[in-house]
Structure formats: C-alpha cells, structure tokens
Design a protein around this nucleic acid. Structure first.
Length: 125
RNA sequence: GCAGUAAAUCGCCUUAUCGCUGUUUUGAUUUAUUCAAGAUGGAGGAAAGUCCGAACACCGUAGUGCAACAUAGUGGCUAAUAACCACCAACCGUGAGGUUAGGAAAAGUGCAACAGAAAGUAUGUACAGGUCAAGCUGUAGUGAAACCAGGUAAACUCUAUGUGGUGCAAUGUCAUGUAAACCAACGUUUGAGGGCGGCACGCUCGAUUGUUGGAGGGUAGGCAGCUAAAGUGUAUUGGUAACAAUGCACGUAGAUAAAUGAUAAGGGCUUUUUUAGUGAUAAAAAAGUACAGAAUUCGGCUUAUAGAUUUACUUAAAUA
RNA sequence: UGGCCUAUGGUGUAACUGGCAACACGUUGGUUUUUGGUACCAAAGAGUCUAGGUUCGAGCCCUAGUAGGCCAA
C-alpha cells in the first residue's frame, strides 16, 4: 500500500489547469466537487491531483489552508482504493463548495462517495 | 482588599502512527535528473493592513523653472522617517498619568446659517449716567464670536524644509518560435518618432525607422535574484532616555494551485457545577483553550487577540 | 505582490464653496370604478458604512478601520 502524495502527483502546471477547467467534466457529492480530464504526461503515475477552496466562502487563509490539508489527507489515505480499476492517465481537481468547516471523517466518507460516482461514470462509457 | 494608571513579557506541552518540504551524506541508475536509505532544518506577535521610512534593482546620472505632494514647538537619536526619546506649552483627569496636524491672521483673498440694530463698507434697541447737542460712557439683550475689535490656515495662501520615477510581476539568463518577420496606407535626415517625471525649456538616441490597419507565429516553466542580516541573545560601560560602544555565545523557513500537516492518547491552564472541610484548599464532572499563515528583506506605525505573568505607581468618594 | 475607487430611505440617484438631507420608483391609506389596473390626493419610511478628531456647526474636511469592486505580466 502506498500512502504518499509527493510533488509529482500534485497538479501544478498552469496550462494543464486551464485545460482542465475549460474541457474537463465534473461530478459532485456535496460539499465536494471533482473536475476530471483524461490526458497524458511524462511521469510514470496514474493521476495528478490538485485541491482548491474558494476565498469567497472562507475569508481567512488559516481556514482555507486547514481545509486543503484535510482534502489532501483524505486523498492520500484512500487513493489506492480509488484507482484500482483506472488504467489511463487523468488530471483531477477537487473543489470544496461548502461553507462550514469539516472534520476528517466527514471529508473521507464524502470523498469515497465522490470517487464511486466517478468510477461508475467512467465505466459506463 | 476594591478600583485605576504606566511599562514589559508569554501566548499551550509531550508521545505514537501516517505524510509534506529545504539542505546534505551514501548507494543505484536511463547521465538527465530521478529513486531508496540515513542525518538535520521547517510560521508570528502581529507573518495581517500596506500607512510611513530605507536597503536592493532597473529606467535617460535624473539640470532649471512652474505645478503637485508631504512635514511643521525646542533639542536629541537613527541607515532613514511623519517613527522613537527628553523637555516646554495648551487642554483633560482627584491622582498616578493621558492627548495634541503645537509655524504665520502687521502680505493678500475668502467664510461666518439662524438669531441680532450691527458679523467691517460698521452701527444703534432698552435702562442708567451724561451733554448746548451727539452712541459720548456703562449695563442688558442676540450669538460660537460684538465696540483701541477679533475668529477661522484638518479654507485658499505665505514662510521654512524635503521629494527624479517605477517596483522582486524589479532585473538577468536558458528554453520555445523562419518572428523587431510578411502585406497595405500615410509620415520621415528640411529630423519622423522615441527615451517610464504632470507641463515647459534643456539634454539625449535616432534610419536595421514611426503610426494605423490586415493576416499570422510563439510563451505564459526552469534557473538565478532568495535569504548572514543596519541579525538574535546576553553581560559591562556611557547617556535622564531613545540609543551607542565593546566582549562572549548562536548561526535561525524558503514554498510557487503555494510545504511547515492529519489522527489518536495523555498532560497543562481558565471558567462553571457538585462533594468534603470553619477555612486556605482538595477531588470529580462538563465546557473552553484566542487572533491568526511567511512569499525580496529590514526599521517603525495601525488594527485583531482566549487567557496568563511581572514591575513601578495613584487614592477624591464609598467599604473594612 | 503592487496600485486605485466606492459606500446616503426597500431600490436607483441628488445635496454647489461646511449652515433645515432632496427626487423618482416602490410601500401604506384615501378618491374615482361593479371590481382590478390607470389616474389623482395624502402619509410613513434615513440621520448619511463604523469609531475618533478639527470646527460654533460635518453627508461634505482629516485620521484609523469595515465591506464591496477594479487594474497591472
């Protein structure tokens, strides 16, 4: 089992992010929302993932950092389950849409629901 | 004891598991960095607001005049400031103390609603005094201000002093692209047009050229800048103080869709309740544990902040 | 990171050089109409984003904050 979430797996290219938001599709499980796009990149990994929280809903940087850390933590601990069946490379962006501060348990359960929705949607096609 | 004033300090801790990131050592490799293992660093008193002042970088070494902006008691301190320190003055407070944009109204211009006879182009109501006569004198009345006039400069202005501009998205460099390329019109060595100050003069570059339109090609990532600094702590000396000098010790974050975390357990601290005790206090339970996240770097200021600690000082009324 | 702007009834805007905060739409009530709309008449509704200061007096001047918005490769 691999619980790491290193620099290579983070979504950092501005170009790719722009492409993701213009061409990507999304699924949501409130208060989370996943934007995804099948692409290819050089590194030998299956997915690049980023995380985002709106400044509109959380004014202070401390709250935003806290939520982004929780999202990353939930992704890190569960990603091996999510990508068992995934064969092609993808870019992901996870957005937090809610307005209340969550706990880790809450985020984990929601994220599991979110990726179940995603994988069922992928396998339909 | 209660209440208050001033200054200063701290602002959660420990362990376990799983992670993130900088530096470095060893090993492996596809020779480009990547991977593995080890070692060792990793948010604040405000990191915030961006209100002042600098360092540093570039633009034309940035001259003169006008304009614009800022500051305004005296002295000191500093790299520098509008910050800081001391003193004087005015105002507030019983007091310890606090606040101050605190130059000039005999250079000029303006402003003063309502009320009032009159707010300067000066003028006259009532009562009393007074006179040949007279606002000639006093008081009252209106108002923030009323009779040899004053007020207002956080109104224009004057005086003194100061300010070249733009900011790390500065700037350099590598990569990509046949790209200051190509087409059309107009202008141009008789100087077009530009050079990042608001204007003028002056200065300077200038034919591999300027403006407008058309039709297009790329980049939007990497590296440097980047963290050793007017550095931090401490002691002594000088100074009322801000601060300065000297000695000793330490070597202290560098991310870039943006690291510095998550979870669990335990312990502090505060408040409330219950129980025991004459009481100081002890035990148990519950709740709370703030404001807030580096982004080129420093010195100040301002604002937010649960709670805790220390030192010096004050006493009008009220209580013991 | 750096720079700039705005805030006035429920909504959109005025308020000159500091001197009684105004207008339209909307709201409420009345008249007209068989009823509703239209039209006409009347009324209520703010103390100017917050806190200080200057001034006799502040929406206006000054300082600090709050909220919202804009620009820059």
């Amino acid at each position: 089992m691999n619980y790491t979430y290193g620099n290579k797996e983070k979504l950092k290219s501005k170009k790719l992010i722009d492409q993701l938001f213009t061409e990507g599709k999304s699924v949501s499980a409130y208060p989370l929302r996943l934007v995804y796009l099948g692409t290819t990149f050089k590194e030998d990994i299956i997915a690049k993932t980023g995380v985002s929280v709106s400044k509109r809903n959380f004014k202070t940087a401390v709250d935003r950092n806290r939520i982004k850390r929780l999202l990353r933590e939930a992704y890190r601990l569960n990603k091996s389950i999510f990508f068992n069946n995934l064969t092609t490379q993808h870019a992901f962006m996870i957005l937090y849409i809610g307005k209340d501060k969550p706990t880790l348990d809450f985020v984990e359960t929601k994220m599991k629901i979110l990726f179940e929705k995603f994988s069922s949607k992928i396998s339909e096609k």
